[in-house]
C-alpha cells in the first residue's frame, strides 16, 4: 500500500526533477532539448495530466501495453507513453524495427532498454514500417524527455483503420493507468 502511493506521488516529481539530467548520449544537444521539456509539454495540443502526474495527449490513441499512436491519414506515428517512460527510468537504448518490416497490432516490434530493464514494445496498429526515428540511435533519452514528440519510434502505413477501435482514447487510457497503479 505504501509503495503504491509512493510510486504515484514520486511520478509527479520525476518529470520535474530528473529529466533535465537525463542527457547522456550526446549531452550538449540533449541538455537543450531536455531543458525545454516543460515547454514542449505545454506546447502539446490538448494535453492533460493524469492523477499520477504523467501526461496524455487527447487526440492520440493508446494501447494497454503503453504505446501511443497518432494517426494522420494513412500514417500512424508510434511511441511509448509518458507513463511508460516514467516507470522505466533512463532509457539507454531503443531497438528500432527496420523500414519495410511488417508489424501487427499487438505484436512486438522492438524494445526499449533502461539502465536496469528491458521492455518489449508492441505495435498498436498493423501495417508496414515506413520510417523509424534514427535520432534515437544517438539520443535514446528523447524517449524520456519528449515521449510524445521527439521520442517517437516508428511510422507505420496503416492497413486497416478499423483496428483503431481496439485502442483506448486518452480518458480511457488515463483511467487505465490509474487503475493499474492502484493495484499496487
Amino acid at each position: 500500500m505504501a509503495s503504491r502511493l509512493l510510486w504515484a506521488s514520486s511520478a509527479a516529481s520525476y518529470l520535474r526533477i530528473s529529466v533535465s539530467h537525463r542527457g547522456f548520449a550526446s549531452e550538449e544537444k540533449i541538455d537543450i532539448e531536455e531543458g525545454c521539456k516543460d515547454l514542449l509539454i505545454e506546447a502539446l495540443p490538448n494535453h492533460k495530466h493524469v492523477e499520477s502526474g504523467n501526461l496524455v495527449v487527447e487526440d492520440f490513441k493508446y494501447a494497454e501495453s503503453h504505446e501511443w499512436v497518432k494517426v494522420d491519414g494513412k500514417t500512424a506515428t508510434v511511441g511509448i507513453t509518458d507513463h511508460a517512460q516514467d516507470h522505466l527510468g533512463d532509457v539507454v537504448y531503443v531497438e528500432l524495427p527496420e523500414v519495410g518490416a511488417a508489424v501487427i497490432q499487438g505484436s512486438g516490434f522492438g524494445a526499449v532498454e533502461s539502465v536496469k530493464a528491458t521492455s518489449d514494445i508492441y505495435s498498436p496498429v498493423s501495417g508496414d514500417v515506413v520510417e523509424v526515428n534514427e535520432e534515437l540511435n544517438n539520443s535514446p533519452g528523447l524517449v524520456n524527455s519528449s515521449p510524445y514528440e521527439k521520442g517517437w519510434i516508428m511510422k507505420v502505413e496503416i492497413k486497416d483503420d478499423s483496428e483503431l477501435k481496439n485502442l483506448k482514447n486518452s480518458d480511457e487510457y488515463a483511467k487505465f493507468c490509474e487503475e493499474e497503479d492502484a493495484k499496487h
Binding site: 514520486s10 539530467h21 533502461s114 539502465v115
Partner: peptide, 28 residues
C-alpha cells in the same frame, strides 16, 4: 526511506528501496 522518496520493492524477502528521487543514472 519512504519519507525520502524511496521506491520500495521486494528484495530477498525484504522491502528495500530500489531507488529514491534521483534516477539510477544520477545516483550511480
Amino acid at each position: 526511506h519512504v519519507a525520502n522518496g524511496g521506491k520500495m520493492v521486494p528484495f530477498a524477502g525484504w522491502s528495500m528501496p530500489i531507488q529514491y528521487k534521483d534516477s539510477i543514472m544520477e545516483s550511480t
